[in-house]
């Protein structure tokens, strides 16, 4: 896998220099690397909830965005819900696909690979006997997840496979989905 040593001529819209600078800065001051990501969720009605994402903590300070992102979550009508948004599990799929895709772009930039089109489809298998409590041997979550990439780029197939592999290796959401996380849920 040849690494591009020459100055980048590739335009994937990723500012690799800035990312590398950030990495160097954060290596020097690990406290600044401590981030907290947040979302707030408010129940609306039935299975419908409304979530917002705005501030986060990082670089040693509270950070604010120019706008608040809004997300509605609900369940489809086959579950006797009003279908006012994607289901929470679909948000997980969105999270995984967008994290891997961002990684593909950043790593391609770093490796001097010009991307033209990158599309991913993602599918999670779920046996509802788990969440419905029908069969205790069936887990609540996905039995498995499959992500399929179509990539049109100036690179050999092996390089694209290496790109997608490296993206999984560096992906936060991939790690969250494939490895356990301690979760604390409290009632205030």
């Amino acid at each position: 896998m040849p690494m591009a040593a020459a100055a980048s001529t590739v335009k994937n819209g990723v500012n690799v220099e800035a990312l590398i600078a950030a990495r160097e800065a954060l290596t020097a001051t690990p406290v600044a690397a401590q981030f907290k990501w947040r979302a707030a969720c408010e129940w609306k009605n039935g299975t419908h909830s409304h979530s917002t994402v705005e501030g986060f903590y990082g670089l040693g300070a509270e950070q604010h965005r120019k706008r608040t992102f809004k997300f509605d979550a609900d369940h489809p009508e086959v579950f006797a819900s009003e279908d006012k948004g994607a289901t929470p599990v679909e948000y997980v799929l969105v999270g995984l696909a967008s994290c891997l895709t961002a990684g593909v772009a950043a790593i391609a930039q770093h490796r001097n690979i010009q991307l033209r089109v990158v599309t991913a489809t993602i599918e999670g298998d779920m046996d509802l006997q788990g969440i419905l409590g029908i069969d205790s041997d069936v887990r609540n979550g996905f039995g498995g997840i499959k992500v399929s990439y179509k990539i049109d780029a100036d690179a050999k197939r092996e390089d694209l496979e290496a790109l997608v592999a490296q993206s999984q290796k560096r992906s936060a959401v991939y790690d969250i989905v494939t490895n356990p996380t301690n979760v604390v849920v409290e009632v205030l």
Partner: peptide, 16 residues
């Protein structure tokens, strides 16, 4: 919750 690459993985739900 799983065993992957020789590592036993435990759910983060112990507290619950």
């Amino acid at each position: 919750a799983g065993i992957a690459n020789g590592k036993a993985q435990f759910a983060g739900s112990l507290r619950n």
